[in-house]
Design a protein around this nucleic acid. Sequence first.
DNA 1: TGTACATCAGTGAACGCGCGTTCACTGATGTAC
DNA 2: TGTACATCAGTGAACGCGCGTTCACTGATGTAC
Lengths: 194, 194
Amino acid sequence: MPYTAAHKQQTRARIVECARMLFNRYGYDNVSIDRVMEEAELTRGGFYNHFKSKEELFAAAVSSFLMGRGAQWRAEAGVDTSGPPRKAARQMLAGYLSRKHLGDLEGQCPMIALPSDVARASAEVQAAYQQLLVAMVSLFEGSLPGRRAAARQKALVLAALSVGGMVLARTLPSSKLAEDVREAAYKHGVKALG
Amino acid sequence: MPYTAAHKQQTRARIVECARMLFNRYGYDNVSIDRVMEEAELTRGGFYNHFKSKEELFAAAVSSFLMGRGAQWRAEAGVDTSGPPRKAARQMLAGYLSRKHLGDLEGQCPMIALPSDVARASAEVQAAYQQLLVAMVSLFEGSLPGRRAAARQKALVLAALSVGGMVLARTLPSSKLAEDVREAAYKHGVKALG
DNA sequence: TGTACATCAGTGAACGCGCGTTCACTGATGTAC
DNA sequence: TGTACATCAGTGAACGCGCGTTCACTGATGTAC
């Protein structure tokens, strides 16, 4: 067998990572396969050795965030999931709703960058999006005291507030309003986490 | 002057309304000018008699919701802005986070349908989006008692929660989770409104 | 009241361009001997 | 250890197609007489 299996895997991962960054910044429809492959220092023809369609790449790109760039994101934001859950949740909230995260077009969470793109995409892409939400909800839920049902409900609210606040802030023209929304969501979240 | 000014205005309004519905359902990039004009029972060539670019149409489509389809939306949802503000805010919240609104792809609020499209569009489009948010925040803010600053902050949180809850529910595959997010956001909103 | 005219909303062919995908190929590589 | 070979990751030209926009035109209409 020429080329190792690891070599192909690495190439694939490089394509996915480039796609994730470009989709995040420009949106799914505005990024061509050519552009992704060029960014990965490859030529377009090889794309279909790795993916059966552009849509499959989309799912892989969204999905990759959790363990890939998202892990780095958590490290940079100081989110320590091995410590006390309460502390981790507070760190997550602070990092997620930070001004830094708002401005990080390529590194930001795909839940913020791509909601309407995903809403119109295949079930596979939506499933990848759901993974991200489930991870966030679980982190919040695990940090909340009291009965399970109540904690889960509160965690869902915190997730909707976090993603919603950031989506709004990203969508508005850079303005005091955008900053106010982000700030208000953060402050309310901190209070709700306790 | 052949054709009345009103005639041209009406044609323009028809194009904008068709565009709003199509953008809402399929997204800005997935709807061609040809498609919009066809839906409005016109041919593509006439488009540039009314708009200088597709992007200008986008801004008009988002902007049109507030006084156009949005007014109808409020009427159907039983939102009575001429009555007590408290009551109007409760009606708005119930309508906005309703299952019916979630399923209404063409008639839904553009803040839910098009956030990432708008985030990548021109400042004019983003300004139109901001109009919608300002209207919602004002409605909530006016219904909340207490000091202005606190009421405004609470109103921003309610808007982030409402839009965020619906954006997440729309983006997830139709699942229990989507329904849970919508429900949790609604229940928390009701409590926060008081 | 009836008619000729000027206006401009609307038409439809055409433009250059970039898209997702296919395909015959090339050449770097791990393996068998 | 050195070499011939089979594999398949990667190449780049080509495909049909739909896009946003332009433009020379047509013909329905309100107005002047």
